Every structure is written in C-alpha cells, then in structure tokens.
Simulated scan of single mutants.
Amino acid sequence: MKEIPDKNILLFRSCLVSVEYPGVESSTKFVFDKLGIDYAISEKQTCCTGLGYYSDVFNQIDTSAIGARNFRIARELGRPNLVMMCATCYAINKKSVKLLNKRDDLRQHINQLFDENGLGHLKYEKDDLKPTENIFHVVDILYNKIDEIPDKIKYDLSDYTIATHHGCHYCKVHYEDTVGGVRDPKVLDELVEACGCATIGWYDHKRATCGTGFRQRYSNPDLSFTATADKMNAIEDEDVDILVHLCPNCHIQFDRYQHLIGEREGRKFKAIHLNIAQFIALAMGGDLDKVIGAKAHTTPIDSIIKELREVKK
C-alpha cells in the first residue's frame, strides 16, 4: 500500500462541498481532529476547475495552470500533501501533477504565463509534488488511521442497513492509486465497519455511476436520471437505510434528486445520503447541525436516524 501522510496536510476546499454540503468539510475537520491528523486550510487556494473542465469550459492548460498555482502555494506553506474532500478535485489535481512533471513543454508554457503576469514566484518546478506521494483523497487519510477509529466511536449505527458508493473520479480515473482496488471497491465498506457497522457489501450496480456526468444532468437529463434510478432501485431492493459515498457531486445527484427520481419511477426511495466523513463524524458524536450539517440535506437525515444510541463500553 502507498505511504499515506498524517501531517503537513493542506485540506483542499471544494466548491461543491462549500456550496452544497458544508457539513462534509466540518465533519472532515471533526474527524481529523479526533484522529490527531495535522492539517490546515489556505484562503489562497482556488477552485480545481472541475465543473468547468468536465463541461469543456476550461481546457487542460487552464486547469494545469490553476493546479500549478495551488501546488506552489502548498509548498510555500510547508504543506505539500494536498488532501481532497471531492473526488473530482482528487482526479483533476492528480492528473495535473502528472502532466506538469511529465510534459516539459506544458510546464514551461505555464511558467512563462506566470512570468508574464507578475506571478513568477508561483512557477512550478518539475517534481515539486508527486502524484502518489502528495495528492490524496480524504478516504486515503482515514483508511491510514482505520485502526484508531473504533476507540473514538460514541454512537452505535449498526441497526441501519448500509451500502456504499465509491464514485467514478476516485475509482475510475487513477486505477493504480485507488486504495483496495477498483473491481470490487471496499475502502468505504471497511471504514464503515471500523465504526462498528456492517455494510451489505456487493450489490447490483455497486460500481455503476451516480448518473451525474456533470453536464449530463442538464443536457441529457433522461439519460442521467435513468442511470441514477438504476442505483436507487438497486439499494431500495436491498432495503438500504444509508448510502455512504465520497463525492459531493454524487451526493447532489442522490440527495437532491431522490424524490424526483422516485416520482419518475413510481417508487418511494427511503435512503438517506452521507459522505464518509459525515458518517464517521456522526458515529464519533458530532452534532447533527454544527458538524454534520443536516439542514443542508434535501432528504432529511432524521427521516431514518430518529435517535442515536450510545455504544456500550
């Protein structure tokens, strides 16, 4: 397994997390604090360009230039380990590092742009960061601390039927770097199990997309929601109470549109949707409003979790 850091971390803020589910960020901080993980956030960090990049608004040069700027800021802060709360931030930033290290022409072009705009101090040098040593998703960091999680658990969530959704941009972009592999992804299942809960494991459509496809949600909604319905029907068939995932875009697709897709399918879907950081934070005793951010959810968390039972120790 790749070496995973627990210090000198720059927690990379996500547009979708901040706007849609701020509880993912507060939950991540809560869990990191509980596990003694050294991290910081920088106001200088900017967007990864994910929504624009995958909608063909930003090209690879623009995206790599913005990445290079963020990478230099991380180095200047002495926090070269960038940790993403969003699977798209993870996929894009890792790709940008790979390209900047491999493509001398791209790196030189971007550095020239920095020079021409008075940003020479942000120039990216080859191997300033390395894709497998400095770019991570939150799940990587949590998995590295999996043996420490059980001692921090306050609430017993084992009575709920739980399934996981691992997300395309974590599992299907950088195959070789995915913790636990991609054919039957289990990193989320194992983190849930560390909280004292079982998951249903493999189920029909476990590896399938959430259906978002970024612009597909708007340009081809029927195709998008058909893919989402496949997943929702599958978890409803398994009587799932909680779907745990790791990407805010997946979160939006499942949580915001569940009721509409239920009407489309003529079926009432009951599952609630939690990011893995929210799930662990909840199990560790995080406040539903101040930490988990329950009020930002469209499908009410308390429609399933009506009371929390403390773990007997």
Rank of each mutant, 00 (worst) to 15 (best):
A277I: 06
M232S: 01
A87S: 15
R256P: 02
H273W: 11
A283Y: 02
I304S: 01
K102G: 01
G181W: 13
A91K: 01
R69L: 15
I41S: 05
L246W: 00
N249Q: 07
D33V: 11
D105W: 11
Q60Y: 09
V31Q: 06
K152L: 14
K126R: 12
T226S: 14
I149V: 14
T228K: 03
L122M: 14
H121A: 14
L142D: 09
H259G: 00
I235L: 09
D105Y: 10
I162Q: 00
P221E: 08
G23L: 05
Q45K: 13
K130M: 12
C86R: 03
K98C: 11
G180I: 13
D104G: 04
A271Q: 06
D177R: 07
Q45R: 12
Y124Q: 10
I66R: 00
I235W: 06
K123T: 08
G201I: 08
S27Q: 02
L119Y: 13
G118K: 11
K95S: 15
N8K: 13
L82Y: 07
E190T: 09
I292G: 00
I141Y: 04
D302L: 05
Q258D: 01
K270C: 00
Y124W: 12
T49G: 05
A283L: 02
I110T: 05
L142C: 10
G181R: 08
K2E: 11
I9K: 06
V24I: 15
C247Y: 04
V17D: 02
K186I: 12
I110C: 13
K102N: 09
S96H: 12
R183K: 10
F71N: 03
H109W: 06
D289G: 00
Y218G: 00
V138D: 04
E76P: 08
D222R: 03
V83Q: 02
N8M: 05
Y21M: 07
K313G: 13
N70K: 10
F30K: 01
C48I: 10
C171S: 07
L223M: 11
N101Q: 11
F58A: 13
